[in-house]
Design a binder for these strands. Structure first.
Lengths: 402, 402
DNA sequence: CTAGTTTTGCTTGACCGTCGACATAAGACG
DNA sequence: CGTCTTATGTCGACGGTCAAGCAAAACTAG
């Protein structure tokens, strides 16, 4: 069997351009002299590499030059607009699509009702159409697209990009999302669980200060995404972060939709809160109604959410001891209904977890809000496409053809 | 300020030798032709790199050649005996030292009573002396030592290798262990928490099958080490894995040595078990006595251990949902007292955790037993010293001087 | 407007790593 | 013992990288 392997770098002509780009990716403009010192290359070599990146339009000279008495030095910076990313966050009932630049800034965005249970072909067909519209909106074409990132509301085998036995996505099991999409959009496709993607998005927002982060989504259900040393921890079956079905104390009688009893989700999830408020005579059928009630100042709803925060905090207190993150970001419908949930979470964590672990721990609501998903989908693509090896390969391929 | 930075590879003469070694590190002998194909290098280049590694004695030709009609091809394999590693597992009362080869095989080993509370200088002085004796025992000298790995029973800041506010190591706080040891033994020193090191050791034993592993140590206290994607997760303050002070349900009244109540350790730790058995009239003052009782067939002790397994299993069931490991290895004094603890752990995890997460989960006792610590200490050193960049640097340094 | 200063682009020659080809070594087979 | 086959060492060629130097460019200061 022929493996055609090149386990180690090919030593191609412009190899190293990727390393240069990864220095410039922080966005700071730099002069040639600075870059030569940082890379350790000769000025001539550096110019070669820089030219290669400029031909790819991944780097561009900035307007402001540095004046130091003589000829001003032109500075070069990462060109965020070189390519665009198509990012999709598909929820159970709702979808958000965006075209972003290479720094996750949105160029065009759309949010719409789109039930996932319509099945893969209708949903993805709509997705392709909408991406075309959004591209037109911001004056870009398919040629500018460097990759497509998709978040799905269920377990996804990230290696192949296919959903596996998703409980709430009828028809999607083992559907080859990447193949289907890349055949129609002509770019690499990456797929992952929606909570993982939101964790990536939140990590991106604080990446300069933080290595270990937990993102907790409290919507109809409860789940979390785990970032260890800046990388997503997916677990052996890609099932990591499923804290919604952890059994919490003193609620052994509550039945969960998963069939077990006492699950966190059945106690503190949006669906459970709605049901409890309904029993108390309030008008609430879904997680979103609970948020409405809280916004309207309904005392019972506020109390319920705060108590839910305490229950979730109990589980997160364990997580803090076990995982020792420096950030916990809480997002999802229920978290966005104000600080009530967070208050409950903080109350329990700071009183229960180890002082060493809580000392420098930040517990916050998401700054990105419902944009965390699309941001994370874009991050997933950007991290892949702008990885040094991939850039080197692209640069050499282009310089080879002329 | 001069940074003298070379962020990107120096392009030194024999760079790439490290990559070659990392291929050979699986121990399988290979011919030049195979290696050339695997690396993608020309045969001549490959021979150059191979020579460099052979000069370092890191690779050696094997005796058996492959006969294929013409001139037989000599095969080359990683030479595990090229260097030795000094590994130390310092417990609270007990210490185990070993000299190992580059595949963690013990060449000489010693286990002794050595209370950690004698303070850093007496303990480390004894350690240096004993290492000299062990080296003499297996006919090696300090020149053969490529690194020293140490495990300590408390929180360690791995970057600097110093203990920080250890609760049970008087005098060790902020003691610069690496500097002290490397000044006397002339080799790089790596220090980490003992549980982390044991996790590394257990991971090493199953690394071909497993990416995500949890090692649980049940001794006087309870703690765990976390391996994510083959790398140790230490957490933001290096405090990850502290499951001993997670509060478990229905034991809110039990007081823990940490001052809180209801901690797992206060319910299921070896110290707690001894106390409970003592109350019941048995003769047990420490965790080791509990093991004795179990070995002697004492029913109360067996029941106590099995119940402790259930309590620990409760916490591990949460961990399984959150982290989704593929292996859980249980070690420490209490775990080695037979299958009783494991039975309790399995009972709870398989009945409580999500089916998806438990489907391919293995829950085992340690094969390495009380050797997990020294093995892990050796692994820590080997992974560092045999990392491609480090090997490249060593090879170029040697070829430069002649 | 001119002289001074610093960056930038271009060229050259030298060096070193890598490659491919050729010659030689080592064992198998008849 | 000679021939065949395959492995291995050696050597020249190629190409990428570097350092140095020079000329042009671009701005400041007077």
């Amino acid at each position: 069997m022929l493996t055609e392997s090149t386990l180690i770098d090919a030593g191609g002509s412009a190899a190293g351009a990727g390393a240069l780009l990864s220095i410039l990716r922080d966005g700071r403009p730099r002069t040639r002299a600075e870059l030569a010192q940082l890379t350790g290359w000769a000025r001539s070599t550096l110019s070669l590499r820089l030219d290669a990146l400029m031909h790819q339009r991944l780097v561009a000279p900035t307007d402001d030059a540095i004046h130091s008495g003589g000829r001003p030095a032109t500075t070069f910076a990462f060109n965020q607009s070189a390519r665009v990313v198509l990012a999709a966050d598909l929820g159970v009932t709702h979808a958000r699509l965006a075209v972003t630049d290479l720094a996750t800034n949105p160029l065009a965005e759309r949010s719409a009702e789109m039930p996932i249970d319509r099945g893969p072909v209708p949903v993805l067909t709509w997705l392709v159409e909408t991406f075309h519209e959004l591209l037109a909106e911001c004056g870009r074409g398919l040629a500018d697209v460097c990759g497509i990132g998709v978040g799905l509301p269920g377990p996804v085998e990230h290696g192949t990009g296919t959903p596996v036995n998703p409980p709430i996505m009828p028809g999607w099991n083992r559907f080859a999302v990447p193949e289907w999409l890349s055949a129609r959009l002509g770019a690499p496709v990456l797929v992952d669980n929606d909570v993982n993607i939101m964790a990536l998005g939140e990590y991106w927002a604080v990446r300069s200060q933080v290595q270990h982060l937990i993102f907790v989504k409290v919507g109809t259900g409860v789940g979390c995404g785990i970032i260890s040393e800046g990388r997503l921890h997916r677990g052996a079956q890609g099932a990591a972060g499923d804290i919604g079905h952890i059994r919490v104390p003193s609620f052994e009688e509550v039945v969960c939709r998963c069939g077990n009893t006492g699950c966190l989700e059945a106690v503190a999830g949006g669906g459970a809160l709605a049901a409890r408020l309904r029993e108390a005579g309030e008008d609430a059928s879904a997680s979103r109604d609970v948020v409405e009630l809280v916004r309207a100042g309904n005392v019972r709803a506020v109390q319920a959410i705060r108590q839910a925060g305490r229950e979730i905090g109990t589980v997160l207190a364990w997580v803090v001891n076990f995982f020792n993150p420096s950030f916990i970001v809480v997002g999802g419908d229920i978290a966005e209904a104000g600080e009530h949930l967070l208050a409950g979470v903080r109350e329990v964590i700071y009183s229960t977890s180890l002082p060493l672990a809580t000392q420098h721990l930040n517990i916050l609501t998401s700054d990105l809000g419902d944009r965390a998903g699309v941001t994370g989908a874009a991050v997933m693509v950007i991290e892949h496409v702008l990885a040094p090896e991939v850039v080197d390969q692209a640069v050499t391929a282009l310089s080879a053809e002329g």
